[in-house]
């Protein structure tokens, strides 16, 4: 290929991403240290107030008091994302194992069925759970039948159900890919050495499926941290997460700099996870080499 095309072929992609993605991210960082505008928006005036506001609130006479409100929201968001990831892992392992041990045609069909709901609009999927988990819905009735208190909708449990539903395909696929490569002879070897089925599962299958589980954990944890729709609809707006907090700051609360600061904290968390993951992968490659 001629040198000319090499260069020009990449120009549209770089221009698009630079203008609509990289530049905006820089601007977010700048706005997060800007002054809040009197009528929404912001003014270019350097201040660290938005970050201070995450930790402190101004008291009666402008003295700063530590206020854990936002720290708790950040903590709760991380916790929700962690629980979502853990549930996805526990659920994906048996499902991926069963799929991986089918014949080639059934395997392809089942994997296709796992991916399909992922393409249905997020808002439609969350809406469907809104109906199911409502007091008249099947899930809501089941909850009351099982002796659950009050209604299931607008609780953290409802949010978790919605989040696991949204992100589970992202866990099943990599776990399936890892288990599919597993040599069945290893399971027989385990049995020959008098290991019970569950010992074999614990000592052979889980360690070999681990790269898939780790990859899936990243794929689920990262979007779960930024989740917006599940807390808004299934949490009824009462369960604030970082995503909905950012949303309100740019919407009704009209505090852009504070919203930008929270967005940057969210980005930092995501980047932290990705960097740790990349370093770990790098170490492993070195160790294997």
């Amino acid at each position: 290929m001629r040198r000319g095309f090499r260069f020009w072929g990449l120009v549209p992609a770089w221009v698009l991403m630079a203008v609509t993605l990289l530049a905006p991210l820089v601007i977010v960082a700048l706005v997060s240290v800007a002054k809040r505008g009197a009528y929404g928006g912001f003014e270019w005036d350097f201040t660290l107030a938005p970050y201070r506001d995450i930790l402190f609130t101004a008291g009666w006479s402008d003295e700063l008091e530590f206020d854990p409100k936002y720290v708790l929201i950040i903590g709760r968001t991380v916790l929700l994302a962690l629980i979502t990831t853990a549930i996805c892992m526990a659920l994906a392992l048996p499902v991926a194992y069963v799929i991986a041990t089918r014949g080639p045609r059934a395997k392809a069909l089942l994997i296709y069925l796992v991916t399909l709901p992922f393409w249905v609009s997020m808002i439609v999927r969350v809406y469907a759970w809104l109906i199911i988990l409502g007091n008249d819905g099947f899930g809501g009735r089941l909850w009351q039948f099982l002796g659950g208190e009050g209604s299931l909708l607008f609780t953290p449990t409802a949010m978790l159900i919605g989040m696991v539903y949204s992100y589970i395909p992202l866990m099943v696929l990599p776990v399936f890919a890892a288990i599919e490569k597993l040599d069945p002879a290893l399971l027989e070897a385990g049995a020959d050495l008098y290991a019970s089925r569950w010992t074999t599962a614990r000592r052979v299958i889980v360690p070999l499926a681990w790269p898939g589980l780790a990859a899936g954990a990243i794929l689920v944890f990262v979007p779960a941290l930024g989740t917006v729709l599940e807390p808004m609809l299934l949490g009824g707006g009462k369960q604030i997460t970082m995503g909905t907090l950012i949303q309100t700051q740019f919407g009704s609360a009209r505090n852009w700099p504070f919203g930008a600061a929270i967005a940057l904290v969210l980005m930092a968390l995501v980047m932290g996870v990705l960097i740790v993951n990349a370093l770990r992968a790098g170490h492993k490659r070195e160790a294997e080499a």
Binding site: P24, I27, V28, V228, F250, W256, G259, M267
Partner: peptide, 15 residues
């Protein structure tokens, strides 16, 4: 694909 969509959304809004 790597960024939370809400971050990209507010970034574009500011731009």
């Amino acid at each position: 694909l790597l960024l939370p969509e809400i971050v990209l959304a507010v970034a574009t809004l500011i731009l």
